[in-house]
Structures are given as structure tokens and as C-alpha cells.
Amino acid sequence: MGRLAAEIESRLIAALAPSALDVIDDSHEHRGHGGHRGDDGESHFTVKISAAAFVGLNRVARQRAVYAALGELVAPDRIHALRIIAELPAAP
């Protein structure tokens, strides 16, 4: 896991206490596309997250909560593209 992916994970854990979290660096799939920073840069990510903090929130509000947790990381010079799959925890 690269530095930026680790920072994404750390911020989401601190802000949303997820029951499940997967941060996937998709940068290698975007070589030659806008925002790709070459072999040394992380730029494109998928975040799969499940958290009790999402209870009562619709899909858009859940995505906003993820963006809020990431703060200034969500800037074109840091994270160029972010795919978010934000779900409610499985019922016990």
C-alpha cells in the first residue's frame, strides 16, 4: 500500500469507524490518461467502505461523508479520480 492509499485508509478509519474498508489503488489502469502521474504516483482509487455512520444516509450523503473525511486529499494534484462504494453494514 502506497503512502496516499495509507493516508486515505487512516482518515476513513478515524472519521467513520468502518466495519469494512478496502482502499484499492487503480492508478496502473490509467496509464496515459489524464491525471496519471507515471510509475511513481498514486492518482486513481476505489474505496469500498461499510460503516454504521451511514445509517440513515442516502447514497449521495454517504459519498459526501467520505469526501469530508478525506478533506484536502480530494484535489486534482492528490487524488485525481475516486470511485466510492459506500454501504451500510450487514444486519446482524
Rank of each mutant, 00 (worst) to 15 (best):
I13N: 02
A14Y: 01
A15Q: 11
A15D: 06
A15E: 09
L16I: 01
L16H: 00
A17Q: 12
P18V: 00
S19H: 05
A20G: 14
V23R: 04
I24C: 07
I24F: 10
I24V: 15
D26I: 07
D26H: 11
S27A: 05
S27K: 08
S27L: 09
H28V: 14
H28L: 13
H30Y: 14
H30E: 13
R31H: 12
G32A: 05
G32Q: 09
H33L: 12
G34V: 11
G34T: 08
G34A: 15
G34E: 14
G35R: 10
G35K: 09
H36Q: 14
R37T: 13
R37L: 13
R37A: 14
G38H: 12
D39A: 15
D39M: 14
D39C: 13
D40Q: 12
D40F: 10
G41C: 08
G41N: 07
G41S: 10
G41W: 07
E42L: 02
S43L: 09
S43H: 12
S43K: 11
S43N: 12
S43D: 12
F45Y: 14
F45P: 05
T46D: 11
V47E: 09
V47R: 04
I49P: 04
I49H: 06
S50T: 05
A51W: 03
A51M: 04
A52E: 13
A52G: 08
A53D: 07
A53C: 11
A53G: 06
F54I: 01
F54V: 04
F54R: 01
V55Y: 07
V55A: 15
G56F: 13
L57D: 01
L57T: 01
N58Y: 04
R59L: 12
V60S: 08
V60M: 09
A61D: 12
A61Q: 14
A61K: 13
A61W: 00
R62V: 05
R62F: 06
R62S: 06
Q63V: 01
Q63L: 01
R64V: 02
R64L: 03
A65L: 04
A65M: 07
Y67C: 10
Y67L: 12
Y67V: 09
A68K: 05
A68Q: 08
A69Q: 02
L70D: 09
L70E: 06
L70A: 08
L70W: 09
G71A: 09
G71W: 04
G71K: 03
G71P: 05
G71E: 08
E72H: 07
L73Y: 08
V74M: 15
V74P: 07
V74Y: 07
A75Q: 11
A75F: 00
A75Y: 00
P76E: 02
P76N: 01
P76K: 01
D77T: 11
R78G: 00
R78F: 00
R78T: 10
I79D: 09
I79S: 04
I79H: 04
H80V: 02
A81C: 11
A81I: 10
